[in-house]
Design a protein around this nucleic acid. Structure first.
Lengths: 328, 328
DNA sequence: TTGAAAGCGCTAACAA
DNA sequence: TTGTTAGCGCTTTCAA
């Protein structure tokens, strides 16, 4: 690999001059500039980013922490972040944390040592404390850690309320809820939204709420149990689409007809909801937009560290499909 | 951030000594070592990886190129690569190439400037030529660029043959094929495998083969057309699961019963095949293993650049589910 | 308009 | 067993 010195030598200038034309800053005679560019061309010279990073103390890299990229919610998010990141000549680092606090902290430290310029974090376990010694900007998704950390969120509670109210509006009388794992950030809000709507119904009791883990397999099992124990349930609001698909399959195995006997609504709006039979009614999050807004805000924070906290909340949308049906 | 000099000063030694205890190499008195470690502790010192990289000419980072992480085949692959990568204290960079040669080349160059230590590439457009000036090791997935580049693949042709023969074995008489896009590396092999089995059948003609783009939406459309035009088709081998799901939905919309009237088999073995109704029979690739083997081999190549090309081929497995059924 | 030189933080010869 | 020093490749002050 040619270095800046090779270029300087060939063009008969100092490295400072080469650096100036490279970065387009400072005065440089158009004649010499031409010579330098020719030398660059001839040597196929590409500046060494590591050396630049060392000098600047910044690496032009940003990292995204997600629990597990295999969960189909996250690829779209990751894609959005990478697209924006890329457009601004940053490099994109993906970290799967498995919701493990230890992994998160390890990554945070390892990447700080690499002068990573910023972090986009989907996490339920990270605290303000953990970020205290981190000097680069951080933005959280899905949840506000604190009023001091920037974030992009959706109104989970409102969405959950909408989902539950929708089930009521189409005539469901006994509505159950399969919630996310207690460790997950948004679980609580979605549960609250559900409770907002049904808590004071005469029929309601806590047996209508069961806790899942946001995955398909487990949801299939617990839904079978729930539906077997309570055959009066005619509507389920499920805290995410993946689990909602589990409910669909559970009902199928119990020969419960959807939507005739049971209406199911999910949350997220991931593609899988289009591929099931019946297709899945859901509360759609603007996933790509969440990711790209987060990335944009992060980059802005990197450029203007003096800027204060930015918190944005995006809207969710009810998408009616075939897993719910208005009763006659 | 404290530097090695701060530590040296506090421990009353030279930076060389600090470096020695940091890297556990060279002789250092256990007394001084203790002093140094105390200073490190007290200052919360963490070595600057960028400076290390500059010196070493290696960044302890590896990159994975995939067409699009939103395609559910790739998250599992990415996960595998990250897991292995991580275990060996490397950092994982994810690049979505959209099958664009330009993007690939841009990434290759940008990351080389960052001293990335190796590349794992899923691509149909990269050539040996493109890699000529890349000094770090490269391993390709899905396809062998050339006998000079290491690779981890599966036997696509054999798998396709198995899929098609399986349809025959359960009694299908007219078997169609929905192939991948011509640009994709493995399309051709899967098509060949299909042809190996049916090409010489009396009924066979090229109308039984249509070209998809590996995505769900498009497959849904072309399958509707195919099934409408040829109502004698009683089996379809689809080049990947995502498109196979499209076929399932297309059949549903045409009121064609699966598996009674039509058997469908996919390729890949991604999770979505478990969530459809009916669930999807498929040729399963060992996706995680492909990713982790690739990462392991790459790391080995990084450590031993003198090593020659390593090419591995893994086995695929037929998974019978509900979208195919033995005719009585 | 250009160059000399210091320095980003680290490692590894070489010397002591 | 430890320290001195050069240097990885770049940018930027400062001086000319």
């Amino acid at each position: 690999m040619a270095t800046i010195r090779d270029v300087a030598k060939l063009a008969n200038v100092s490295t400072a001059t080469v650096s100036r034309v490279l970065n387009n800053n400072g005065y440089v005679n158009s004649e010499t500039k031409k010579r330098v560019n020719e030398a660059i061309e001839k040597l196929q010279y590409r500046p060494n980013d590591v050396a630049r990073s060392l000098f600047k103390g910044s690496s032009k890299m940003i990292a995204l922490f997600v629990p597990d990229i295999k969960n189909p919610f996250f690829p779209e998010l990751a894609r959005a972040v990478e697209d924006v990141t890329n457009q601004h000549n940053y490099t994109f680092i993906l970290c799967n944390t498995d919701d493990s606090h230890e992994k998160e902290v390890t990554y945070l430290n390892a990447l700080t040592q690499k002068s990573v310029d910023g972090f986009i974090i989907v996490s339920s376990t990270i605290t303000e404390e953990d970020l205290h010694h981190i000097t680069s900007p951080v933005i959280s998704l899905d949840r506000k850690f604190s009023s001091k950390i920037s974030s992009v969120t959706v109104n989970n509670r409102k969405g959950a309320r909408e989902a539950t109210a929708y089930l009521q509006s189409i005539g469901c009388k006994k509505i159950a809820h399969i919630s996310g794992p207690q460790t997950a950030s948004n679980t609580e809000e979605r549960l609250k939204g559900y409770l907002d709507v049904v808590e004071h119904e005469a029929w309601f009791n806590s047996n209508y709420v069961v806790t899942g883990d946001y995955r398909f397999e487990n949801s299939y099992e617990i839904a079978k149990q729930l539906l077997t124990n309570h055959n009066d349930i005619d509507g389920v609001f499920v805290a995410n689409d993946l689990m909602a698909v589990g409910v669909l399959k559970a009902a199928e195995s119990l020969h419960i007809k959807i939507p005739e006997q049971l209406s199911v609504i999910g949350f997220d709006g991931i593609t899988i909801g289009l591929t099931t039979t019946p297709s899945l009614t859901t509360i759609q999050q603007p996933i790509y937009e969440i990711g790209s807004r987060a990335a944009q805000i992060l980059l802005q924070l990197i450029d203007h560290p003096e800027q204060k906290v930015i918190q944005e909340e995006l809207e969710v949308t009810l998408i009616e499909r075939d897993s719910t049906k208005r009763k006659e």
